[in-house]
Nucleic acid binder design. Structure first.
Lengths: 340, 340
DNA sequence: TTGAAAGCGGTACCAT
DNA sequence: ATGGTACCGCTTTCAA
């Protein structure tokens, strides 16, 4: 036991048949004992022998074999491309994992970086998950939804900026955020508004609709809306700040709090007064945004709770026949602090 | 096709036998065609028929059945408890995922929230992954390593604060970080040093060794080291700042940049001059730390690249017999900005 | 109370 | 060039 098991690669993995042999019973009995099958009475001595044999061999059941036989899994697949950053997101994610586990699902995040919509759906379908919950980073097509359902997925739930045919959709309309931000700036008397567009890949799904929402809000008031590409580094921010006065803007909605903090600092370093000369607003309501001076105004976003989403998953799994629902669950409101 | 498939739950999932029947060939032929088996010649017309049949039925192979037959998987399991926050970590994570996919592994994150070391190892072993890479959030015991290896895992790699018997260990000695931070403060002439201890759960694995490193560095110079519990909210920071002068400290190492930013702001609001009265240093070298004034000094941490880790995984999988290696791969160095 | 055996969905050997 | 079939590990009915 204390010896280095360098031959472990050679030794075959113990199966229930090995346990049965060692305990002197049949494989059926092993299964009954280890699964506590209530429909069958097994004598206590036998139970003990089986348990000891399993322990001694270090037997661990083979999940694939089990679910193959069962014809279904309890796997909930969460496809991820980029691990999303931000405390809002990660709190949601942890909640969801925890809640699903409590409902006896196995939560598996499947890295789908570099797969297109249909290829990804195929790869997911091969795993025969009982449910797929897409957080919107990987585009899900109606065809992809069909593939998943035909492969036995009871629930396909899309959490993201847009609704997908055939899937239950939790629509987080990102346009709301841009809308609220710009509406807030308009209300503060601004009329020439920049909208920061992050250059980092993978954010377009969020930044584009936010810009659209900003445009919508601006159009109603005859305001000017100006997209501003920005990379998440100090040089890019400084460059933008250097040509700021030439842009003729009196306000900026900076995608989220991180970009807002970055840009606000660059503006201040370029001697542009915030908020007097230029108002700044972010989004996400990060704690860190309150640490700068002036305190950063922001758009607070209501996120669905992991608990609620887990309940939806479970409900749809139990009753897959129901029509795909569409919930609009995003609420967003501007929070005035000091930067706008 | 355009009709709502509300009966989809009823329709059985198509198997390769269904494809064979529709194409008028045997299951073997289906397998050959769809896997492009080179050892076998199949006529082009047959190939086409099989492909069309598969397409028409929406056939997707069953990964569990395949790996059951094959006797092994290409799954690399990444257990996660809390999704870690921070750009450093998420960049590493994305890199690792990408690099492993390029090496033809399937990357699966398995949520292990609320499982203890051995229970978690068992749950992982059921999936029969070819490799397990623990990022240190879920404690891995020597016994757990044994379970995994006996279940067929070729590589068990532990990336974390401490080495684990039997596993390849990439030791990121967190003590280094506390050590460097305090050494830096000593060098700046400070002698009474607070060490922020986050109260958020799940961080002890990092905060405790960092404190230990701080103590070690302080002991050599006869400095005073004072642990300071702090929650990640403004109230907690304000409360700590309010009693700051009573603590008699002239410097603080604040766990990481986020806590450092929070505390520094609270100190400033309490009219404690940074760095004159109290020096502040964080860790992680976040971009946001440079946005505060004074700019936050920090400890920069070398993280192993995802690429390198993926290569290690692949190497160990190919040659599982090799003795577990132990790499000390953490480099850390203090970066003087303005807050210390 | 326990055992024998079928079968889940693939793959690959051996025939034909 | 293609088909028949044994087998991977486990669960579950049916018999004994």
């Amino acid at each position: 036991m204390s010896q280095t098991p360098k031959q472990s690669a050679e030794r075959p993995v113990p199966t229930s048949a090995d346990v049965a042999r060692l305990a002197g019973v049949s494989r059926a009995t092993v299964s009954y004992v280890l699964n506590n099958t209530s429909a069958v009475r097994i004598s206590d001595p036998t139970r003990r022998r089986v348990r000891e044999a399993a322990e001694e061999l270090g037997y661990v059941p083979h999940a694939a074999a089990r679910s193959l036989r069962a014809g279904h899994t309890r796997m909930v697949l969460l496809p991820t491309a980029h691990v999303p950053v931000g405390p809002l997101y990660s709190r949601f994610f942890n909640e969801l994992q925890w809640a699903l586990r409590r409902l006896d699902y196995t939560v598996v995040q499947y890295g789908s970086l570099g797969l297109d919509g249909d290829g990804a759906a195929r790869a997911w379908a091969e795993l025969r998950p009982v449910a797929v919950v897409s957080l919107g980073e990987v585009a899900l097509t109606p065809h992809g939804v069909g593939v998943l359902k035909r492969s036995g997925a009871k629930a396909v739930i899309m959490l993201g900026p847009q609704r997908v045919e055939g899937a239950h959709s939790l629509v987080m309309d990102q346009r709301e955020i841009g809308d609220r931000a710009v509406a807030h700036l308009l209300q503060r008397g601004r009329r020439a508004i920049g909208v920061v567009m992050p250059q980092e890949p993978g954010l377009e799904l969020f930044s584009e609709p936010r810009l659209e929402g900003a445009r919508r809000a601006g159009a109603g008031a005859g305001a000017r809306i100006e997209p501003l590409p920005l990379s998440y580094d100090e040089e890019s921010a400084a460059a933008l700040a250097a040509r700021w006065r030439g842009l003729g803007l009196d306000a900026v909605y900076a995608y989220n709090d991180e970009y807002a903090m970055l840009l606000m600092r660059a503006l201040q370093d370029a001697r542009i007064d915030v908020p007097a000369e230029t108002a700044v607003i972010g989004a996400d309501d990060l704690l860190l945004g309150r640490l700068l001076r002036p305190r950063l105004s922001t758009v607070q976003i209501d996120m669905v709770t992991g608990q609620r989403l887990a309940e939806l998953v479970d409900r749809v799994v139990r009753d897959p026949g129901a029509e795909p629902e569409r919930h609009d669950l995003m609420g967003a409101r501007a929070v005035l602090r000091e930067s706008s």
